[in-house]
């Protein structure tokens, strides 16, 4: 056995040991809990059916609000993410700027989406505007990082060539970095919107609007048939958004179809002559 193989095996044993220890610490190895848990689950599953269609109208309205929260939150988050991503790209700005901005983005990412929801409920009061802003800040934490990495991944020879033509930093961003990373930006944005639909669905747990408000209420009032209806509505919307975003991604990013690289956002912005 080589030293590398030995290290690999030791690492696997260490991970397994750590896993077992953690399971013990949180009580998962206590088998006396398994039977009551299974019985509770079975009872809960039985109570979910049949789903109550009477609340469908209310839930569809709440789901529309959830989609709006996700859409607005993603949009605002993307707009804030772009400049932050530029500032944090190590290939575009000096270390002092990029490291400071990275730390700021990291700090934003540290706060969970629900906590952002709570913060904006405190600021704005109950309602979807708090949810949208919570989703926006949560989006900034992730999208700014993903965008920044896309900017850093732009072919350095493209950057050198445009920079070498005497362009300044803003021109470099507009004429090289943005067009070259457009496919990745669109792909990340669609992914974030999909993700934010799910995140927005639970924003109502803290009073920040959307279908989560009803889900929490149904759980607290033990109205599990209504909860099932809410889960079905959420499932249908999440599936539909997944499907639509996959279709959109294929349309916008033809590289995924093996047709080479294209960025229609920027192809054909052909320059105006004054």
């Amino acid at each position: 056995m080589t030293a590398r193989q030995l290290i690999t095996r030791l690492a696997l044993v260490a991970v397994a040991g750590l896993g077992l220890f953690s399971m013990y610490r949180i009580g998962l190895l206590d088998l006396s809990h398994v039977q009551p848990a299974a019985e509770n689950l079975a009872e809960f599953a039985g109570a979910l059916f049949p789903p109550n269609t009477d609340v469908l109208g209310t839930l569809v309205d709440a789901m529309l609000e959830t989609i709006e929260i996700a859409f607005v939150g993603t949009l605002i988050g993307a707009l804030i993410s772009l400049p932050l991503a530029f500032l944090s790209a190590r290939t575009l700005f000096p270390p002092l700027v990029s490291v400071t901005t990275r730390m700021l983005i990291g700090a934003i990412r540290t706060v969970p989406s629900l906590l952002w929801g709570v913060i904006f409920v405190i600021a704005y009061g109950l309602g979807p505007e708090a949810g949208a802003l919570g989703v926006a800040l949560y989006t900034v934490g992730f999208l700014a990082k993903l965008y920044s990495e896309s900017f850093e991944a732009v072919d350095p020879e493209v950057v050198e060539a445009v920079q070498g033509a005497g362009s300044n930093r803003l021109q470099l961003i507009v004429y090289a970095v943005l067009p070259e990373s457009a496919n990745a930006l669109v792909s990340h944005l669609l992914f974030m919107f999909e993700y934010n639909i799910r995140a927005s669905a639970i924003m109502g747990f803290v009073g920040a609007g959307g279908i989560g408000y009803y889900m929490l209420g149904y759980v607290q009032l033990l109205q599990y048939e209504n909860l099932m209806m809410a889960l079905i509505v959420t499932f249908v919307v999440v599936m539909a958004v997944d499907y639509l975003s996959a279709r959109l991604r294929v349309l916008i990013v033809p590289a995924m179809q093996g047709r080479g690289v294209r960025a229609p956002l920027f192809a054909g912005i052909t320059t105006l002559a004054s």
């Binding site: 020879e157 060539a161 445009v162 033509a165 362009s167 004429y175 090289a176 960025a263 192809a267 052909t270």
Partner: peptide, 24 residues
């Protein structure tokens, strides 16, 4: 400077790429 891989912006048109030479 023309790098080995040419350094062209692939999604821009030929005209837009050429105009980047006049950005300064």
């Amino acid at each position: 400077y023309v790098p080995q891989t040419l350094g062209l912006v692939r999604s821009l048109t030929a005209l837009d790429n050429v105009l980047t030479g006049a950005l300064s």
